[in-house]
Amino acid sequence: MSERVNVAILGASGYTGAELVRLLARHPRVTLAALTANRKAGQAFASVFPHLGGLNLPVLSTIEAVDWSAIDFVFCALPHGTTQTIIGDLLTGPHGGRLRIADLSADFRLADPMVYQTWYGHAHEAVELQKEAVYGLTEINRAAIATARLVAVPGCYPTSAQLPLIPLLRAGLIDPDAIIIDAKSGASGAGRDAKEGSLHCEVSEGIHAYGVGTHRHGPEIEQGLSLAAGRPVAVTFTPHLMPMNRGILSTIYLRATAGNDATTLRQALSAAYADEVFVRVVPEGVSPHTRHVRGSNFVLIGVHADRVPGRVIVTCVEDNLVKGASGQAIQDMNVMLGFPETLGLDQQPLFP
């Protein structure tokens, strides 16, 4: 357990980059060897994120300035559309044979490049590399992640939707044609760049739906659910912006198949995740809250009987910056490198 890996974080000045630094700083097998932020190159990390000022960290640099011969693992936390070429150059370059990469953007999540082009507005620039990318929903795809050199870390909403639904679809317990996902996220999900819709006065003291019927996480969710069901699945997915910094609550409306109800669905999910550290099914009558997972890599799932017979309501909560992004990326890294899966991630939630 003494050997350490040198890690680079590309895009370290964003929220997910800062979460990677916060979590990896206490990882016993990781040395943070390079942090990039092109627009802030030359600045100390503490000047960008003072809350992490007590750590001994490298100065922010450009991607071009990184000594790739000294890097073992890369977290890519860059915006979508910028990652395909960068990762392609890294993996085909002189050090590509030894690098392992976890990409937190959307650039490698969608297996079909034409679906990516439809939803992201431009052609995929690394089609051959897309063929080997592994979708990094750790509890569902652990075996494939273990041998991958490129993992596409799932989106925050898709994580909170797929973890409850995939076991139920695999077991045939719910109708694949009757799934409604009503999801609510904190404002950090929009990233750190200045945007009018993320201003305090635009977010506080209210709630609103956005991307109604058009959100890019819709096809990502459907991709995973279709694989689980063994046939195409289309869902109704609507995200909402909440006046909070962190967290996602997905409320999922389902129709159970004949002979099944909330009890059998809860039993199936409990069995599916019985050996998982980070996914917990709460007892009957308990409704999980986003504040119960804040700052942690945990996911809590509740199962509730609807007043209408045959219908079931499932609720799922996560921290969008941890299990919804950086924490899951570290969980994937641990699996890829053969480390214990909980390394760097065993901190308990912050409350209140």
Rank of each mutant, 00 (worst) to 15 (best):
E125V: 10
L99W: 09
Y120T: 01
G88D: 09
L104V: 03
I86Q: 09
V127F: 01
K131H: 02
A126K: 04
G136M: 05
Y116I: 03
H122F: 15
D112W: 13
G97I: 06
L91F: 09
P94I: 12
E132R: 01
H95F: 13
I140P: 00
P113G: 13
L90E: 11
L99T: 08
Y120D: 01
R109C: 15
L137H: 04
G136S: 08
T118A: 12
I86Y: 02
A123Y: 07
I87G: 06
L99C: 12
Y135E: 04
L110Q: 14
L129S: 08
G93D: 09
E125A: 15
D103E: 11
D107M: 13
H124I: 04
A133R: 02
A106H: 11
L91M: 12
R100A: 08
E128W: 02
L104D: 05
A102E: 01
I86L: 14
A106I: 03
R109K: 15
L104P: 06
G97L: 01
A133C: 08
P113L: 13
L91P: 07
L99E: 11
Y135G: 05
F108L: 10
I140N: 01
K131G: 00
Q84E: 15
H122A: 14
A126H: 03
E125L: 15
G93H: 07
E132Y: 00
A102P: 02
Y120W: 14
Y116D: 08
V127D: 11
E139W: 00
E125Y: 07
D112G: 12
E132K: 00
Q84C: 04
L90Y: 10
G97C: 04
G96I: 03
D103T: 06
F108S: 07
L91K: 08
H95K: 02
D89I: 03
L99Y: 11
T85E: 12
Y135D: 06
E128N: 13
V127P: 07
L129G: 10
A106L: 10
Q117W: 05
G96S: 03
Q84R: 14
Y135N: 07
G96R: 02
L110F: 11
T118C: 02
W119N: 12
E132N: 00
M114K: 15
W119P: 07
R100N: 06
I86S: 02
W119R: 09
M114D: 15
Q84S: 13
P94N: 10
L129A: 11
A111N: 08
A133Q: 06
G121W: 09
T118E: 15
T118P: 00
F108H: 09
E132L: 00
A123C: 09
D112T: 11
K131L: 00
T138A: 15
R100S: 12
E139N: 04
E132G: 00
Y135S: 09
D103C: 07
A111Y: 01
A133K: 04
I101V: 15
T92E: 14
Q130D: 08
G97A: 03
M114C: 04
R109V: 14
G121L: 10
I101M: 07
E125D: 15
Y135L: 14
V115Q: 10
E128T: 13
Q84D: 10
E139A: 15
R100Q: 12
G93L: 07
G136E: 01
G97P: 02
Y120F: 15
R109F: 05
